[in-house]
Amino acid sequence: MSRQRSIEVIESSPYVTIGELVRLTGVRYSTLKFYTEEGMLVFEQAEENLTRRYKRVDTIQRISYIKSLRAEGKTIPQIKDILNQTK
């Protein structure tokens, strides 16, 4: 089992894991996993390493945007459409 990185290291790292995104955003793991599976969050994954890596700044901004759209009452399909238009 790997050791958790400190929050200071995470906040200065260009890439983070989904677990680290949970710590940074307060969004549940299952929610972030769902967003990833639905193509709403972009990640990189090296073939030899199964860990998904997310660009910290871009992904946190996207999660914040998704949360604001949800607060406006948008559905997941509507949010996916909006995100696809802004690519």
Rank of each mutant, 00 (worst) to 15 (best):
Phe34Ala: 08
Asn49Tyr: 07
Gln78Glu: 15
Pro14Val: 12
Ile63Val: 11
Gly19Val: 00
Ile82Phe: 06
Leu41Asn: 09
Arg23Ile: 13
Val27Thr: 12
Ile60Pro: 01
Asn49Pro: 00
Leu69Tyr: 05
Tyr54Thr: 01
Gly73Ser: 03
Ser13Asp: 06
Gly73Tyr: 03
Phe34Glu: 12
Asn84Trp: 14
Glu38Gly: 02
Thr36Met: 04
Ile66Phe: 04
Ile60Thr: 01
Ser2Asp: 14
Glu38His: 09
Val27Cys: 12
Thr51Met: 06
Ile18Lys: 04
Ile76His: 12
Asn49Glu: 12
Arg70Phe: 02
Arg28Glu: 15
Ile66Ser: 06
Ser64Ala: 10
Ser2Tyr: 13
Gly73Glu: 02
Ile60Arg: 02
Glu44Asp: 14
Arg56Trp: 03
Leu69Asn: 06
Arg53Gln: 05
Leu50Tyr: 02
Leu32Trp: 10
Ser30Ile: 07
Glu44Tyr: 11
Tyr29Ser: 13
Ser64Lys: 14
Glu48Cys: 10
Gln4Ala: 12
Gly73Asn: 01
Ile76Gly: 09
Leu50Gln: 07
Asn84Cys: 04
Arg62Glu: 13
Asp81Pro: 05
Leu50Val: 10
Glu8Phe: 03
Lys87Met: 11
Thr59Lys: 12
Val9Pro: 00
Thr36Ile: 04
Thr31Phe: 04
Asn49Ile: 11
Ile82Pro: 02
Ser2Ile: 07
Pro77His: 05
Lys87His: 15
Thr51Trp: 10
Arg62Lys: 10
Val16Asn: 05
Gln45Cys: 14
Ser12Trp: 01
Leu69Cys: 10
Gly73His: 01
Gly26Val: 00
Phe43Val: 14
Met40Ile: 13
Gln78Cys: 01
Glu48Asn: 08
Lys67Thr: 00
Thr51His: 02
Gln85Lys: 15
Thr17Tyr: 04
Ser68Ala: 14
Val27His: 09
Glu11Pro: 00
Glu47Gln: 05
Lys33Ile: 10
Asp58Arg: 15
Leu41Glu: 04
Glu8Val: 01
Arg53Phe: 15
Lys67Ser: 09
Phe34His: 08
Tyr65Glu: 01
Glu44Asn: 10
Tyr35Val: 02
Met1Asp: 06
Met40Gln: 07
Ala46Cys: 03
Ile79Cys: 10
Arg23Leu: 12
Thr36Pro: 00
Ile10Glu: 15
Val57Ser: 08
Gln78Ile: 02
Asp81Asn: 09
Arg53Ser: 03
Arg3Tyr: 09
Thr17Leu: 11
Ile63Asp: 01
Tyr29Leu: 12
Arg5Ser: 05
Tyr35Cys: 00
Glu47Leu: 07
Leu24Lys: 11
Gln78Ala: 14
Val42Ile: 03
Val42Ser: 11
Gly39Met: 15
Leu83Gln: 07
Arg62Ile: 08
Val16Trp: 07
Lys33Phe: 14
Ile76Arg: 13
Ser64Trp: 00
